[in-house]
Each structure stands twice: as C-alpha cells, then as structure tokens.
C-alpha cells in the first residue's frame, strides 16, 4: 500500500546530487587512468584507499558538524595535538589504553568547542579558529618542537592486518561510513541532527534535545580527528607537531563537494564519501602527473568554489520553480 521506505531515507533531490558526484568520481577515475598508466593499478587503488582513511574519518565528523549548520576549523590541529599526545602515551601505556585516552582527549577538545558554541552562543567559526590556533601551539609545546618516533611496532597491526585481503584501516573506514549512514538515516538522534540544522526553532518546538545535538557533533568531530591520527601514526610510525596540517580544509571541501549545505540541514554521508574519494583522487592524480604541490592548492581551492557555486545555482533554480 505505501511506498517502500528507501525513498524516505533518500529524498530525490539529495540522491540525484549524490549520484551526480558519484558520476564525477567515476569520470575522474577514467580520465586519470587514461592520462597516467600508474593510476589504475592494484597498488595505486590501495594507495588511494589508504589515503582516504585519514581524510575519510575526519570528514565524517565534519559532516555531522556541517549538518547542524556549524563548522569545525580545528580538526587539523586537534589531529596534530592528539597525534603527539598518543605518541607520548604509547611510551607509558599499553597500545589500546593509549589509543582510548588519545581519542578521549580529542573528544574533550570537541566538547570544549561545542559548549562554547551551543551554550554560550559563540560563532562556530570563531571558536574553532581559536581552538585551531591553541591546538597547533600546544602540539609544538608538548612535543618540544620535534617529531616523536620509536613508537611500539604493535601499532602497525591496526593498518597492516588484513581480513579477506582488505586492510583493517579500510575496513574500519567502511564500517564507520555504514554505521554513520544508518545512524543519520534511521535513528532519532541522526534525524535530530538534520532537524537542528534545518530549523533549530522547529526542533526546539518539537521538544527535541537541541542542546545535546548541537554539542555532540563537535565531540564526535574531535574524537574522529584523534582516531584518524591514530591510523596515520600507525602508517608513518612517527608523530610530528605539524601533523594534520590543513586537514580541516580538505575535510570541509570533501563535505561540501558531497552536496552538504554550509547553512545546515542538507547533506549526506554518502555524498561525503564521494567528496573524499574525489579529493583523494585529485591529489593522487596530481602527484602521479608530477604536478608541483604548490599548484595543488589552486586546484583544490577551485574545486571547493565550484562546488559551492553549483549548489547555489541549483537552489536558486529550485526556489524559482
């Protein structure tokens, strides 16, 4: 009698935008495989997935924040700081304990931002800008301005263990996206995030816990930044105070390319995944083609602007109909 539930989970408009991005990712992959013989190799594919893990995990947190209409500029420096903290903790504690403590540290920083934003009503941009500066500065102070190496070898296991031939970090990424997608789509909490971003007054009038769901995304974002850094450390086996530099820009770009609105309320985790893949493929392609890293910033910047412009043109059109 009634239509299947799937259409409820994915409103037509969002799905078309997401699938347009999927199309863009495929087109990009095809073009790159023609330009560079190295692109479409098994090794490079795993390389892309590997590179997607760090950005992908951070982008999940960023998606939650942006869905509520906020922004978190501090993820890069929170990742850098928690990386240093993790490296130091690993010298004192067993690996799992150190990881949990480092992630807790990231969550705590997110809680700090979230409370300032949701309780005191400060602008998310300004609060997280401040936290970004503090995080980076603390990373230098705590590390003594040098990178920390000599991490326990066991840490590598979280990256190099494979299940059915797939590295665990990639499995974690996929699991995280599926879990977040299910949570955002089918749980009350996930839908409350959308309601808060779309019209916080309506959410409050409906009796939803707007305070909790305004703070929670920042906590998740901080915790996920620390998680991403854990995987990064396991790959490179050293922590640098400059680690995670400019990660926030890539994460915001990925979310926005994925169709999320910076005004909140619109966006999806699937779109973010597409955004992450597009960002990583562009970087990977530019590297394979030997483009100077200095030019890469121009390319990424242009993509963010084009994505925003496209969103604006689309919403204009739908408003006129």
């Amino acid at each position: 009698m009634s239509a299947p539930n799937r259409s409820f989970a994915m409103p037509k408009f969002a799905s078309t935008l997401e699938f347009r991005m999927l199309g863009l990712a495929v087109v990009l992959a095809v073009i790159l495989s023609f330009i560079s013989p190295h692109f479409f190799t098994e090794r490079n594919m795993f390389n892309i997935l590997d590179q997607s893990v760090v950005l992908g995990i951070v982008a999940v947190g960023m998606t939650l924040v942006i869905l509520t209409g906020g922004i978190d500029l501090s993820v890069g420096s929170v990742a850098g700081l928690t990386g240093i903290v993790l490296a130091l903790l690993l010298k004192e504690f067993p690996i799992p304990v150190a990881i949990v403590l480092a992630i807790g540290c990231g969550a705590l920083i997110g809680l700090f931002s979230g409370v300032l934003i949701a309780v005191f009503g400060l602008a998310p941009f300004v609060v997280t800008l401040g936290v970004m500066a503090m995080g980076r500065s603390l990373a230098y102070i705590v590390s003594g301005q040098r990178s920390i190496s000599g991490l326990p070898l066991g840490l590598q296991d979280i990256v190099y263990t494979t299940v059915l031939g797939i590295p665990t970090n990639v499995i974690f990424l996929i699991a995280l996206y599926i879990a977040t997608w299910a949570w955002l789509t089918y749980s009350k909490g996930g839908r409350t995030i959308y309601a808060v971003g779309s019209n916080i007054e309506a959410a409050r009038a409906a009796g939803l816990n707007t305070l909790f769901y305004s703070i929670f995304p920042y906590v998740a974002c901080g915790a996920l930044a620390a998680t991403a850094m854990t995987f990064s450390l396991a790959q490179i086996m050293s922590a640098d105070p400059i680690g995670g530099n400019q990660l926030e820009l890539d994460a915001i770009a990925a979310v926005v390319i994925g169709g999320a609105s910076l005004y909140g309320g619109r966006g999806s985790i699937f779109g973010t995944l597409m955004g992450v893949l597009i960002m990583v493929m562009i970087r990977n392609g530019l590297n394979l083609l030997g483009v100077s890293p200095f030019w890469q910033g121009t390319a990424i910047g242009a993509i963010i602007i084009l994505a925003l412009l496209a969103e604006r043109l689309i919403t204009w059109k739908s408003r006129r109909v």
Partner: peptide, 9 residues
C-alpha cells in the same frame, strides 16, 4: 515552524 530540508513525513 517546519524544518524546510526535511520531508513532509
């Protein structure tokens, strides 16, 4: 007081 980005349901 509706959330404009969400569905009618």
């Amino acid at each position: 007081s509706l959330a404009p980005d969400m569905s009618v349901l």
